[in-house]
Simulated assay, not measured.
Amino acid sequence: MLTSAQATSTTGLLTAAATRRGLATAVLTGPGTVEELTGRPVHWYGGPLAAARIAAPLGLALLEPEDDWLARLPEEFTRRRIELTTLAEAWTLRHPAFVKPPADKSVPPAVYPDGSRLPRTGERIGPDTPVLVSEPVTFAAEYRLFLLDGEVLTGSRYARFGRLDPAPLTAAATAFARRLLDAVGDTLPSAVALDVGPIADPYDPAEHWAVVEANLPWFAHCYAADPDRVLDIVLRAAGPSAQLAGPDRRFVRTLRTIG
């Protein structure tokens, strides 16, 4: 398993899990690392910018949800209006909106008062950069679930009211994810990280769960989730293209300009 040189707590946990499993591990320190590993079966955990450079020479198939997946969900699972558009279109917004790219951080995810506050220039963005524009909501808690073949293997709470606060996964989070997967499971890769949570509504005391977003598991923090099970998802989501299952081919990351 190859990891980014930018070490994180999750990198350490997954490297330890891989070592326990008997997998060789390596850190991407430069082109020499790629040359040494070329021709060997490699799995990846790290950022998409580095992944874009190494995927072709190492024969990696990187799975990701489709850009418009969140926008296509029935509103019973989102509880808010969401649209996939371009950064140029988002510049014309005249009202507050939460704006983020579908799968990376090339545009800082945030609630913007209007389109004039969005970035307009940058090395990794341009007018055609895809972004998701959604109605602002407040999540009382946010949970990350790691899914493999339509099953929840592990997960963790990672925030409360937008503040980092890891804690064990709850039955309610798992139940909502399973209901979602029963309805739209075939629209996701076989290995994916899914963020969900209850929306805080001061006018409605009932607990209404919604999807936050779907994430790249090979670039997702595991927080309090079981790293051995997270590793199962990472190995499937970013591994040799020769091992790719047919249904996942539609979810292989296109090596366009990414960040």
Rank of each mutant, 00 (worst) to 15 (best):
D195N: 12
A171K: 07
V131G: 07
R178K: 14
G246K: 13
L180P: 11
D186A: 11
E135R: 04
D165C: 11
T11W: 00
L188G: 10
V234I: 00
T138F: 01
T78P: 01
L23E: 15
V133A: 02
V252E: 04
P101F: 02
A193F: 07
F251C: 01
T3V: 11
P109D: 04
I54Q: 09
R40V: 11
L62I: 04
L132I: 13
F251L: 01
T11M: 00
T15A: 12
R20G: 02
Y45E: 08
S134N: 09
G162Q: 07
R179K: 11
L37G: 11
F146C: 06
V42T: 06
A5K: 07
A225Q: 05
P198N: 08
V230A: 06
A193C: 12
A183R: 10
E213A: 06
V107W: 02
D195S: 10
P136Y: 02
A141I: 02
E207P: 03
R163H: 09
D67M: 06
D204I: 04
G126E: 08
R160H: 03
F77I: 13
S116W: 09
A141S: 12
L148K: 12
D149A: 09
L70R: 13
T8M: 00
P127A: 10
Y158C: 07
I258S: 07
L255F: 01
D114Y: 08
S9L: 12
